[in-house]
């Protein structure tokens, strides 16, 4: 089996995978980073979103081998030194999660969205969530959480 190496949540990792192994399965099965979830088989639901070299990607839509040499951040690498990322904190504060299954992907998408778009409003956030499904919340509190986090992060930068 081919070998693969990358940096995941700041740590250098290597592994042997079948060529057909998806990045999400490498993360979940080989590295036991089970915070990244699989909710569908057609790249629609976004539960598997991670950051690849700083950009949000669906880790079910990449082969592990395509991530060779990359920097990968998963939900487990988002909190730094025991401090929640502002987006994580906002999801809790605004009740942006219920069962928690879509949450890792939602949060990783939201962090990337806030990085890319300086002035988020409700309409833009809803459009930007096109690739993430949630069955519990009806999205209202997710949108609220992302908006609140974006304002807080902008305030922190100012």
């Amino acid at each position: 089996m081919p070998g693969v190496s990358m940096t995941v949540n700041g740590k250098a990792v290597t592994g042997e995978v079948e060529a057909r192994t998806l990045l999400v399965h490498f993360l979940r099965e080989n590295l036991r980073l089970t915070g990244t979830h699989v909710g569908c088989d057609t790249s629609q639901c976004g539960a598997c979103v991670v950051h690849l070299n700083g950009k949000a990607v669906k880790s079910c839509t990449l082969l592990a081998l395509q991530a060779e040499g990359s920097q990968v951040t998963t939900i487990k690498g988002l909190a730094k030194n025991g401090h929640l990322h502002p987006v994580q904190a906002a999801f809790k504060e605004h009740h942006g999660l219920q069962c928690g299954f879509c949450t890792p992907g939602m949060i990783m998408t939201a962090v990337d969205m806030i990085r890319r778009i300086p002035d988020l409003d409700e309409t833009i956030i809803r459009q930007q969530l096109e690739g993430n499904l949630c069955r519990c919340t009806g999205y209202q509190n997710i949108v609220k959480a992302i908006h609140a986090a974006s304002l807080e992060m902008k305030g922190a930068r100012a």
Binding site: K76, L84, F91, K92, E93, G100, T103
Partner: peptide
Amino acid sequence: VRRKEDFRFITGQGHYTDDIS
């Protein structure tokens, strides 16, 4: 009251069935 269970879910530390090996 903000939810006690949220911490594990927002940090990717939930234990769903497929997470068990």
